[in-house]
Computed example of a mutant assay.
Amino acid sequence: MRVVSMQGDTLDALCHRHLGTTAGMVEKAHALNYGISLHGPVLPIGTVVELPNVPAPSTGAAMRPLVQLWD
């Protein structure tokens, strides 16, 4: 997926906004965009960034019970 940075965007902010997570995605985005770190932590406005595909969640994932402290 290709996205364009806005004012003040960082690579992890783009991953969070468009992919919904940063866990492992920032590293993959760095690999897809060779040399993007040369811009520094804040990307210039209009920088085109290729983001990785988010893996589909497995259907056999175990559900954890919700714990609420003050019930």
Rank of each mutant, 00 (worst) to 15 (best):
A56K: 13
S5E: 11
V54R: 00
I36C: 08
A56Q: 11
K28F: 08
V3N: 03
E50I: 08
G40D: 04
P65L: 11
L19N: 03
E50V: 07
P44C: 15
T22G: 07
K28A: 11
D12Y: 14
G24I: 00
A61E: 01
P65H: 13
G40M: 13
L66F: 15
A62F: 01
V42P: 14
L38R: 15
N53P: 13
T21S: 05
H30T: 09
I36P: 13
V49W: 04
D71W: 03
L66I: 11
E27V: 15
H18P: 04
T10D: 08
M6F: 02
E27Q: 11
R64S: 15
P57F: 01
L69F: 13
G35H: 04
M1S: 02
A31F: 10
T47M: 14
R17W: 09
A61C: 05
G60L: 07
M1H: 09
S58E: 00
N33T: 01
T21K: 04
L11I: 06
G35C: 06
Q68F: 14
A31K: 11
M1N: 05
L19A: 02
V67F: 14
D71H: 06
S5A: 11
R64Y: 15
V48N: 10
T47W: 14
L69C: 13
A31H: 09
C15H: 05
R64W: 15
P57M: 02
L32Q: 03
A31W: 09
L14G: 01
A61M: 03
G60H: 05
L43I: 11
T21H: 06
T47K: 14
T47L: 14
